[in-house]
Structures are given as structure tokens and as C-alpha cells.
Design a protein around this nucleic acid. Structure first.
Lengths: 200, 200
DNA sequence: TATTTTTGATTGACTCATCAATCAATAAAA
DNA sequence: TTTTATTGATTGATGAGTCAATCAAAAATA
């Protein structure tokens, strides 16, 4: 059974398993055993490859973030006009896998963890910045920089907020409704600005 | 030192201490000892009065929620017009103590915990419903029920989202900026609706 | 090709620390 | 004396991290 070149395979399996288990239990207080079992290996092996639970978790946020970035890049590739790009960014955020309850639970767990772990916080800050900068970039073609900043801030907040509300699973926040709500926000602002301009 | 009638005093001290420690560490994985130390008593006493850590935590969410409700009731008491009431609701959410980093950290920890604890989830759902219903009530005086629902949903999401973004402590989300952003959202929507009406 | 050596993969068993929960004992009211 | 408040000591469980040992593939050597 033992073959050479297992390392990358196992690392990926463990990170994926971690994400799964964390999403399932909604907390980072999962055991290495839980994760290892899910990945079909022993806890000792997880330690062998990652050195510590902390490190495995860091790799796990990293992977979650990478996933989102890749999705975003793909989504933006096909799209042309600034307004369409904005919608694409919004849509990606509420895409099936991103908006799945377990994924949201994992995000939440990491946000909570960011209070303690400098490294986790760094990653989440990167996510926040990226989202913001993607939004601002497109918005700048449609309004002045100052307004772009403001609208981006609001849009980002709305996206994050819809995630949280979804996490409670009580209000019927569908992906479609969330997209509509966020997209409306952008449209409304842009309309208000162009009307203002016309009046002047 | 031992006197009669300590129970309520100790209970309150312990719940307050729990909130503090949780906010500080940003997780519910704090020890009974930590909490008890902060409250100036032994861990054994905490168990004596609450029976279990779980129970103490439940009382702690309850208290956090009660705080917010009391603040809201107070804020709404002095205010008359529906539009003013909306602003008051928004303002309360970003009030100094609610918007303090430790308070937000505590909220986040509870949200994360809601994935596991039925009881915690119940409390958070109550919060979500209350916020929503407060918003809808006032909005209904200003637009049709259908729109009121939608605007309330968006406003609530924006509030929650601004909390999260604040929790990362990176972007300079001041309380004032958050209030402005949320209030703008409401104004913009109401304006759009009234203009639409005029056009008809 | 056959045999030996080396090395990566893997785990069960163990250690050590932490923590929730319990309990028996003490001290001070009532 | 009975009740309430309070704690130090203890227990039992859990879980991260370590380690020595095994196993099989690959590489080196005969």
C-alpha cells in the first residue's frame, strides 16, 4: 500500500476533511482525530504532515480563500461591462458552494477564530480587501472615487450580513433573494447618483 | 464574608464576567476558571449556581440580548415619527457598548455556537426576528408591506454585515460611518419608492 | 536478475496538560 | 443547630502532540 508521493495527496485530503468537519460542527474545536478519520488516515499522520492543529487550520482557511478567489477570477473572465462585473462579483458570493450552510458555518468559525489567531485574521482581512477592491475597481468606471468607496463598503457589508443571516437558517434567505437584494443596492445608488448629476 | 442573599449578586457577576472573558478571547471555549476568576470567586461556585458551563453560557446570551432589547426600548421611547424611529433603531445597533470590539467578538462567538446549540440558536433567531419586526413596523407607515419586508431584510443584513467587518478591526468602520451607511440605505429605498409612486 | 539497503508512509500506544464536574469540609449567618 | 456560601482537592474524560516500530516501495549493489 505505502507508495511514494503521498504527501500532496494526504495534505489535500486532510485540508478538505478539515473544512468538512468544521463546517459540520460549526466550530474550530474539532479534534485532529475527527479530521483524520474523515480523511481516512490516522491522527498521527495529520500531525506528521502539518506539525500542529494550528497549522492545519491555517492551511484550511487558505484553501477556503483560494477557492473563492478562483471562482471570482473565473466569473470575471467572461464578463465585460463594469456594471456586469459588479453583478458577477455579487453572484459569485452567493454561488451554491459558497452559500452552502456548511461553508458558511466554516466561515463563521474562522471569523470567530480571527479574534485569537493573528494568522487567521490576516487571511480574512485579505478576503475583505479583495472583495472591496474588486467592487471599487468596477464602480470607479461608473461614479467618482469617493462614491465608489462608499458603495463598495455598503455592498461588502450587505454580502457579509446576508451570510450571517443565512447561518441561522431561520429567515428564508435564498441565494436568489440575496443576489437581488445586493444588486438592488448597487443599482439604487448608481441611479441616485446619475439623477443627481442630471439635476446639476 | 459569607452572607445570605448572595445568589443574585454572584449570578450577575458571573454572567458579566463570562461576557467579558468571551469577548476578550473571542470564543466560547473559555474555562469556568477564567470566568470565575474574573468574577472573583472559585470555579466551584460557578458550578454551584449554574449547574453547568452550558447553562452559564445560555444565561450569558440571554443577558446580551436583554441588554440590546432594553437599549432599543429606551431609544424608541422618546421618538415619534416612523422615519425617526428607523434611525433610532439603527443608531442603537451601533451604540458604543454594542459596537465595542469585545461585544462584537462575543456576538460572533455565539453565532458560531448556534450551529451546535439549539438553545443559542433560539436566542439569536429571536434577536433577528425582533430587529426585523421593529424595522417592518416603522416601514409599513412609509410604504407597502411588501416593500417594507424587503427593505427591512436589507437593513438588517447591512447592520449584521457592518458588525462582522468591524470585527476584523482592519477597515476603519466607525460607528458614525456605519450609521450613515445604513441610514442612507433606508432613505434611498424610500425615495425610490416615492418617486415611483409619483410617476404613476 | 536477485539481494540488500535506504527511505517515505503510516500507525498504535503513550505522555502530558487541560478542564468540567463533584464532593467533602469549613465558616458564617440565622 | 440548621442553613447558606464558599472553596480546595480530586476525579474522569478528552485531546494534542510524541515516539518507536512496521511495512512496502525504490534505489543501490552484487
Amino acid at each position: 500500500m505505502p507508495k511514494v508521493g503521498m504527501e500532496p495527496v494526504r495534505r489535500k485530503a486532510l485540508v478538505d476533511a478539515a473544512l468538512h468537519v468544521i463546517g459540520d460542527q460549526g466550530t474550530l474545536s474539532v479534534t485532529m482525530s475527527d479530521i483524520a478519520r474523515k480523511a481516512g488516515v490516522s491522527a498521527a499522520l495529520a500531525h506528521h504532515y502539518f506539525g500542529s492543529k494550528e497549522q492545519l487550520l491555517v492551511e484550511t482557511v487558505r484553501s477556503l480563500l483560494k477557492q473563492l478567489r478562483d471562482d471570482t477570477v473565473t466569473a470575471l473572465k467572461a464578463v465585460g461591462t463594469p456594471r456586469e462585473r459588479l453583478s458577477a462579483i455579487v453572484r459569485v458570493s452567493f454561488q451554491a458552494d459558497q452559500f452552502a450552510p456548511e461553508t458558511i458555518a466554516a466561515w463563521l468559525a474562522f471569523y470567530s477564530d480571527a479574534q485569537r489567531s493573528e494568522e487567521t485574521r490576516r487571511f480574512l482581512v485579505i478576503y475583505a480587501r479583495r472583495l472591496r477592491s474588486n467592487l471599487v475597481d468596477s464602480l470607479k468606471s461608473l461614479c467618482v472615487a469617493d462614491d465608489a468607496q462608499r458603495i463598495a463598503e455598503g455592498t461588502a457589508a450587505m454580502i457579509d450580513g446576508l451570510y450571517i443571516r443565512r447561518s441561522l437558517g431561520s429567515s428564508p434567505v435564498t441565494a436568489e433573494a440575496s443576489i437581488a437584494l445586493t444588486d438592488d443596492y448597487i443599482t439604487l445608488h448608481l441611479n441616485a447618483l446619475s439623477r443627481q448629476e442630471n439635476a446639476a
